[in-house]
């Protein structure tokens, strides 16, 4: 279980996260949603240890991890799929999947992770992770890496970005598979996707760096629409908010 207690975070004298109190129980699928700039990615980075909170405490399965670095948290079983995947000149998809898995896994296993995210393994395993890959391909590879890492808690930051809706529906099975196959694992998905909000056990609504509400879709959606000017326009157009 992950617990954030009174976590606050500033950057350049700006309050990015205020007094975040959040519990993520084992075996839960949690969605975090909220307008652009509300602090969702910052929150994920705080969980992974990429950002250090200015105050507050983070507990993982009872252990205080506030002062642990990224590597230590990764080894304890926290994983994070970046909103903007990183490119590596020289490292191949296979290299990264092996690093994520923690050892050199069998070719067939590496292939499975790629086909699960809709990529033809043969074509991708030996490709370098450079700008020759499209944004959507990079996002899928990022998801495959986290599937290979098998973390107790994985945070996916807007996995839908760059992936067409039709393909994204099949990606949802990847999250569900991970959730099922890794014992007691929890998955946190930062998303605006209605499909994700539908399958989530709980939705956390983040606005201006604060948790506005935690609840189910029926409770959260109206609040989200009300809070975001952008989404108001979308609402008038028929309530579809994929932005």
């Amino acid at each position: 279980m992950l617990e954030l207690k009174n976590v606050s975070f500033f950057k350049d004298n700006k309050h990015i996260l205020r007094n975040i109190n959040l519990k993520i129980d084992n075996s839960k699928l949690i969605a975090i949603t909220g307008p652009n700039g509300s602090g969702k990615s910052s929150l994920a980075k705080i969980i992974m240890g990429i950002f250090t909170p200015d105050s507050g405490q983070i507990l993982f399965n009872g252990q205080d991890i506030t002062n642990l670095d990224i590597t230590e948290r990764a080894k304890l079983g926290i994983g994070f799929a970046f909103q903007q995947p990183v490119r590596f000149k020289g490292l191949t998809v296979r290299d990264l999947i092996n690093i994520a898995a923690g050892n050199n896994i069998k070719l067939s296993e590496a292939c499975d992770y790629l086909s699960d995210v809709g990529l033809c393994a043969k074509e991708y395993l030996n490709r370098e992770i450079t700008s020759s890959l499209s944004g959507g391909e990079l996002k899928r590879i990022e998801i495959a890496m986290l599937a290979a890492k098998k973390s107790k808690l994985t945070v996916f930051d807007e996995p839908e970005a760059g992936i067409d809706l039709w393909s994204f529906n099949s990606l949802i099975t990847v999250f569900e598979k991970m959730h099922k196959e890794i014992a007691n694992s929890s998955i946190v998905i930062i998303s605006h996707q209605e499909k994700i909000l539908n399958i989530a056990d709980e939705i956390v609504l983040l606005i201006d760096g604060e948790i506005k509400e935690i609840g189910n879709k029926e409770k959260i959606l109206p609040l989200l629409l009300e809070s975001s000017k952008l989404c108001k326009v979308m609402q008038e157009k028929g309530g579809n908010f994929n932005g």
């Binding site: 590597t71 990764a74 080894k75 020289g90 690093i99 890496m145």
Partner: peptide
């Protein structure tokens, strides 16, 4: 070496030093 590359590999469980080695070895491969 791009800081974000090191950070990404650390999130996969490598130490900072191991991450740099992987990046260098891959780059020169």
């Amino acid at each position: 070496i791009a800081g974000e590359q090191v950070v990404k590999l650390m999130t996969l469980g490598l130490t900072e030093k191991e991450a740099e080695e992987q990046i260098i070895n891959g780059f020169l491969k």
